[in-house]
Every structure is written in C-alpha cells, then in structure tokens.
Design a protein around this nucleic acid. Sequence first.
DNA 1: TGGACTTGCATAGCTTGCTATGCAATATTA
DNA 2: TAATATTGCATAGCAAGCTATGCAAGTCCA
Lengths: 153, 153
Amino acid sequence: MQVHKCSMTFDKEKSAGFLVNHMARLFAKGLQEKIAPLGIVTGQFPVLLELWEEDGITQKELLAKLDIEQATLANTLTRMERDLLIKRTRHPSDARAQQIWLTEKARLVRDQAYEAARQQNAAALVNLSEEERARFLSTIQKIIGTLRQNNAS
Amino acid sequence: MQVHKCSMTFDKEKSAGFLVNHMARLFAKGLQEKIAPLGIVTGQFPVLLELWEEDGITQKELLAKLDIEQATLANTLTRMERDLLIKRTRHPSDARAQQIWLTEKARLVRDQAYEAARQQNAAALVNLSEEERARFLSTIQKIIGTLRQNNAS
DNA sequence: TGGACTTGCATAGCTTGCTATGCAATATTA
DNA sequence: TAATATTGCATAGCAAGCTATGCAAGTCCA
C-alpha cells in the first residue's frame, strides 16, 4: 500500500547520510566485539594497519596516511601507549618529532586482527552477490572522493 | 601496474568496514557545517526527525524508533533541553515516564534542516547515476538488515 | 645573530556513541 | 498486602571524533 505524505517531509530510510551513519555504527559494533579479545579497539585499528606495514615513522608521517585530525591521532596514540601497543621515542634529528614503534604485543595480534576484520566484512556482505559487493565498494570510493574534494575546497 | 603483496596483508581501501567508517565521517562533517547555522548538531538530527513527525511521546517511544542506546538518547535529550530545542514534562499516568515536546525554536528550523540534509545527500551523490544511487541505497539497507540480525542474535 | 615565522605535537573542551550501573515508580505475585 | 520483579530514565565513565589553542623546537632572514 502506498501512503501519501505531504511534500515537506523527509524520509530517513531513503537518506544516504542517515543510512550511512547507521551502517557505520553497526560495522563498528561488530568489529569491536571481534577484536576486543585481542586487546585492541576500533579507533586503534586504522593506526595499527599503517604501523604493521611500517613502524618507526613519525606522527606526522602516520597522520598523512589516515585522514583524521592531528589531535585525534595524538589522543589515540596516547591510549595505545597506555595499552602497551606502541612506544614513542625522540626523533634523532628533530627534537620536536617522535618515532612510533610497535611493541611485541601489537605485532603478535596482527594476523588475528586481519582475520577479524575480514570476518566482519564477510558477515556484513554475506547477503550480497559478488557483483553487488564490487559495485558497493566502488560507489563508496567515488563518494569519498567527492566529499573529500568538497571539504578540501 | 599491478603490485604483488604477500598473502598476509590487509588492503584497507578494499575493506568495507574501513570505507564505510571513512564515508560516514565525511557525511557527518558536511552535514554539520550545513546545520550549524540553525543551532542544531548532527546527533540531534535523527531525534528531531522523529519529533517533527510527532512530539509529546515518551523517551521510550522515541527510543523504539531510533536504534541507538537508551543512555545515548537520554544524554542527547539533556543537551537538546539545554539548547532549548525540547521540553520534558512528567507523563500524566506514569511518574517514571516523561513526555518530550518540541519548542517553537525547533519547529521553526524544520524545513531548513530538511533542506540542508537533502543538499548534503545531493552533494555526496552528485557523481553517481540515478541507477547507481538507487543500487547504493538498496545495498546499504540490505547490509543494515544483515548486521542488525547479527547483533540481535 | 636575533627576531619572526613555521612545524610537530599536546592539551582543553566539546559531541556522540558505547557499556554498566543505580534508582524510583510501577506491576506482579505469593 | 508485602515482597519481588520489571520498567523508565539518569548517571558514571570511557572511546573516538572534532575545533581551537598552546608551546617548544626548528627555520629563515634582515
């Protein structure tokens, strides 16, 4: 049955922004449950992804890879140090900068963390065809590109 | 050029969870800028959407429409009361419950808020074809359905 | 070489999400 | 009807995002 609504309404179930926010919260919740046993949390995940690729880099170099604000990263790093996931050492040739190093603890959970993320993605996309998944990811990438340009302007 | 990576890696640019999180932050940032002049913020938006449809309902009734936690809603309502967007009155027949009412201030910004959200959605989706947009929204709805089931289990 | 910019990072303070817990009012039941 | 359970909401405390600001170290010139 079709229900008529007056012209000045807003259907949140058809609003991209609303849906995207809802989906992101559900994704985060699922991932959180899966990585909690590893002693890491969702906000640390993107940072760890970069450091597992390469550590010993400075906060600034890390920041360049992340698209979060500098203050957000600084706070996340502080919590990661508290949780014994990283160590920070003075940069040898610039006393302002620090080098960020993974601890053994952080290295050890890498493969399990990758696996947890893969499982979360798989669980979320389980009802989609291979084609639908590919389209979905490519559309998101397009949108991110568009929005980044808007904000940068 | 194709670069080979060893099997145990994780490409965040192909990870649905990573991309969804990034996109959601960009959406929120864009909306925030557009509604700030109206004196409202992003977390209040879903609450307002429901109250613009119907106010005088209880917190519990509101909660049932929102898929956020009860504590999150209670805190958001407290800030909205502080910002003079709502009033809370005791429920006539249940002293535990409260009725939530929009203020005139909140009613006045409704149409502009709708318009801001529409513009944000339009800006984000501007590079997509009509078909791609429809597919995108429908895929998100599927994923939300899947993830909600997972969490509820 | 000293004063003025710039840079790298930290801190303060906010929002919006979460879990866990507390508490008074209501409902149920022995 | 008194004891118990449930319900509706608030509070505490944390994470992770943001903007704005501070500050020490480095750089650049006049």
